[in-house]
Design a protein around this nucleic acid. Sequence first.
DNA 1: TTGATATTAGTACCAAGTGCTAATACTAAT
DNA 2: ATTAGTATTAGCACTTGGTACTAATATCAA
Lengths: 190, 190
Amino acid sequence: MKRSKKERQSLLTEQIAENPFVTDEQLAAEFNVSVQTIRLDRMELAIPELRERIKDVAAKKYDEVKSLPLDEVIGEIIDIELDNRAISIFDVGEEHVFQRNGIARGHHLFAQANSLAVAVIDDELALTVKSNVAFVKPVRAGNRVVTKAVVKGKNPDKNRTFIEVTSSVENEIVFKGEFEMYRMKGEETT
Amino acid sequence: MKRSKKERQSLLTEQIAENPFVTDEQLAAEFNVSVQTIRLDRMELAIPELRERIKDVAAKKYDEVKSLPLDEVIGEIIDIELDNRAISIFDVGEEHVFQRNGIARGHHLFAQANSLAVAVIDDELALTVKSNVAFVKPVRAGNRVVTKAVVKGKNPDKNRTFIEVTSSVENEIVFKGEFEMYRMKGEETT
DNA sequence: TTGATATTAGTACCAAGTGCTAATACTAAT
DNA sequence: ATTAGTATTAGCACTTGGTACTAATATCAA
């Protein structure tokens, strides 16, 4: 017998958030109250019924699927001058860091840099041939990484472009890299 | 009036796969048949009812959330000898390639290599300091990338480990890289 | 003891079905 | 044309997990 209502309602909110698949009946049993009480609680807390909750979860998943292609570019490009330079930002979230110490996994920074190197060329399509990168300082969840890519040189004979990329968090450099890109015009240059 | 049944059933399967949120009634209207017919079709095709479908989608999303930490490692590690060598495989899917030409984005290969380099050390935690990589041959959707990481040397004073990584598809090298890793024992080595 | 708030109970109703039976309709073959 | 066999439609009872609403109790505090 919990200190009624307030406590129960906050527990209830938690529980449902944690597991939206629970029915009123199950909740009633768990809190030792009637189903009606649970319903009243849900009303007051504006928590939708089971089916609506499930539908919401499913719909979200569906939106994700639809927007998955967005994942093709890591980071949001905020400025670009084709064949010259480009800037993107990337907000590091909990999902990008090691659980153990909160430091961002290197490949996310690499992905942002690589995506930007590809984007700045965009000659139909560019592929990374080589790259040389340094992870200068650890990046953490919550950090906003600003990445700049600058075209440094070209070798038109071999269809190569050299790009320098630097990423920083609050004006401190966290990542540096050089990318050698191959630019292809026609399709299928296996 | 479609060439009944077979055609309708295959269309129906498609439709539901594409949009699981559709009710029997809507389908009946669309195919100009009765709701019962749709039900019979679903029976025959073993397609569950709307609510079950939605629940499945939601449950999948939920499983994903729970297993998201798995995403922390790109590729599946199939063999590992700590501090010595490790092998992982990674199946390239449509979601990893450029839509335009079907070639895998470099950062996915890098991610696999980087993850493996981290895993082979696993001294509480390893961070990538520098890396030098080459994308030797394009990789395509459907390819299975086998990646090997080998510890090449150490510099215990500076807590460094050098790792060589090679990835291949059907015994052809597609990616090579050298990784310089920093190994940390204690927490918080800001 | 009175009032207010909280809880429980009970009824009618809904959506989107399942499960079942029975009646038609359509088609193909003899 | 008749008959068999499949396909389609109709109708009814029942199920889950609810909503909406009314009415009866409990509980607690002043």
